[in-house]
Amino acid sequence: MVETLVNLLVQGVLIGGLYALFALGLSLSLGVMRFVNIAHGDMIVLFSFVILSLTGVLGWSPFLVAIVLIPVAFGIGWLLQRYLLQRTVGKGILPILLVTFGLSIIIQNGLLEAYGPNTRKLSGGAIELAAFRVGPIDIGLYPLLVFLLAVALIAGLDAFLYRTAVGARIRAVSDDPAAADLIGLTASRIYPIAMGVVAITMLVAACCMSVWTNFDPAIGPSRLLAAFEAVVLGGLGSLWGTLIGGIIIGVAQNFGSQLDASWQILAQHLVFLVALVFRPQGLFARN
């Protein structure tokens, strides 16, 4: 009994790494640019399908494809912010929500037309099946590596935001766009860089997801909701909080999934709503 519970907990924590990867980009766009990208989950799914197509054409491993795509992802994020989302800045929250909402519907239905409704999965090779035992618990090598990647990415992003010159500029614009503008830091030049970084985290999440689990054109929204809950649970503006939020979501899902598939999602939502009632500012809110 105790063994089963510990096992569920450990596997849930590892899945939490994947959810943290989903949530990282959303945490950045919320913390820095202060908007919710409704198309966040759909963009991750879009990257998964791009990786799927390229692995098919080139015959490479999905991990190699993802590494090669990093500059492309940055470019997509940059262009998206520079030429679409930036047009809505300063007009309140409604326009940007509705633009990303429209984008979400376009991506979902575009993928549906291009790839059909079937579920897909990518093969990561031998690493997917590798596992080792710690006492009574089997730990998959791949989930562990994804978790460590999430930790490394958060550490990297934290260092990028708080220790580099570009990071300082991004934070300056985020804290006070008007004052930053006076010293030559315009939002229209800085935010696209931030969105490029967000898109790279989406690519990493897409790659890890498409090897770990099934995906189809319609799952974007459920990824968005999980990512959103992880961000709010963790506390706004805290990347490490987002990791903890992801872990809580992963554990809740894993315990819920013992009952059935809908309890998996219901448990996730209920943990989020209960946390919202008792700690609306999140666990590790940074002012």
Partner: peptide, 9 residues
């Protein structure tokens, strides 16, 4: 924006 996603949840 948070409320928007909250209504969805």
């Amino acid at each position: 924006a948070y409320l928007a996603v909250g209504t969805w949840v």
